Simulated scan of single mutants.
Amino acid sequence: MTEEEKPSRSALKRAAKAVEDLARQMVDMPEAEWKKLPASPALHREIELARVTKGHGSRKRQTKHLAALLRQMDEETEELQAFLSGLDQVHLREQRDFHELENLRDRICNPDLSEAALDEAASAMPGLDRGAISRLAGSVHAHGDRRAFREIFRRLREAREKTICE
């Protein structure tokens, strides 16, 4: 390898930092997601060791050790990075859907926009009980009922899930 083909020191540092961030992300992820990681049994043991390590300094040292192991496993590291990127995409999609439902609920609870929003919700989610949502919206319009406000969101979310499953 010639001098021109070697990555710069800065590029090597950025790559090492990215692997360290990957290790930290795996150590800090929720239990359910961690168990789904596509890692070898040996790597799973190392991740688990870092996860159960108590004490800030000890955990940080164990995470750096895990990162050093990951730097030696290029293919597995790429696979783990792809897996975590997929989880991020799922999370972003769920977050976007949640905000869309909040926006729809807010429009339903606005007396001026309620009918148009109800029409939109009914056409997008055929299983939606429009009459119940309309009654709940009326309660919000008349009394500022917070329970009805939350119930509208819950019913919209259930109708969206039914629509997705069908």
Score class of each variant (00 low, 15 high):
residue 41 P to W: 10
residue 43 L to M: 15
residue 47 I to N: 06
residue 54 K to E: 15
residue 35 K to S: 15
residue 46 E to T: 00
residue 32 A to S: 14
residue 41 P to I: 00
residue 50 A to I: 03
residue 52 V to G: 05
residue 56 H to I: 07
residue 44 H to E: 11
residue 43 L to C: 06
residue 51 R to F: 02
residue 27 V to M: 07
residue 28 D to K: 07
residue 28 D to Y: 06
residue 55 G to S: 10
residue 51 R to D: 07
residue 45 R to H: 11
residue 53 T to H: 03
residue 30 P to T: 12
residue 35 K to Q: 14
residue 54 K to A: 10
residue 53 T to I: 02
residue 37 L to H: 07
residue 26 M to H: 12
residue 33 E to W: 12
residue 46 E to P: 01
residue 46 E to N: 11
residue 53 T to K: 03
residue 44 H to R: 15
residue 46 E to F: 05
residue 39 A to W: 00
residue 41 P to E: 09
residue 46 E to L: 14
residue 50 A to Y: 00
residue 43 L to A: 03
residue 45 R to T: 05
residue 30 P to F: 04
residue 53 T to D: 02
residue 28 D to L: 10
residue 36 K to G: 01
residue 47 I to R: 00
residue 51 R to C: 04
residue 33 E to R: 14
residue 44 H to Y: 09
residue 28 D to G: 07
residue 29 M to E: 01
residue 40 S to Q: 04
residue 44 H to L: 15
residue 55 G to H: 08
residue 27 V to P: 00
residue 38 P to Q: 09
residue 37 L to S: 07
residue 42 A to D: 14
residue 34 W to G: 11
residue 33 E to V: 09
residue 56 H to Y: 14
residue 41 P to A: 06
residue 32 A to C: 03
residue 41 P to H: 03
residue 49 L to N: 11
residue 55 G to T: 07
residue 51 R to L: 03
residue 32 A to H: 15
residue 32 A to V: 11
residue 27 V to W: 02
residue 37 L to A: 15
residue 34 W to F: 13
residue 51 R to N: 08
residue 34 W to N: 03
residue 51 R to T: 04
residue 37 L to K: 05
residue 49 L to Q: 09
residue 46 E to W: 09
residue 29 M to F: 03
residue 48 E to Q: 13
residue 39 A to E: 06
residue 33 E to M: 13
residue 52 V to L: 11
residue 55 G to Y: 10
residue 48 E to C: 01
residue 33 E to A: 12
residue 47 I to T: 09
residue 29 M to G: 02
residue 51 R to S: 06
residue 36 K to N: 08
residue 36 K to Y: 00
residue 49 L to G: 13
residue 33 E to K: 13
residue 39 A to Y: 02
residue 50 A to F: 01
residue 31 E to P: 04
residue 26 M to V: 12
residue 32 A to G: 12
residue 49 L to W: 00
residue 38 P to W: 08
residue 47 I to C: 08
residue 32 A to Q: 14
residue 30 P to V: 10
residue 31 E to S: 13
residue 50 A to Q: 00
residue 50 A to M: 00
residue 30 P to C: 09
residue 48 E to N: 12
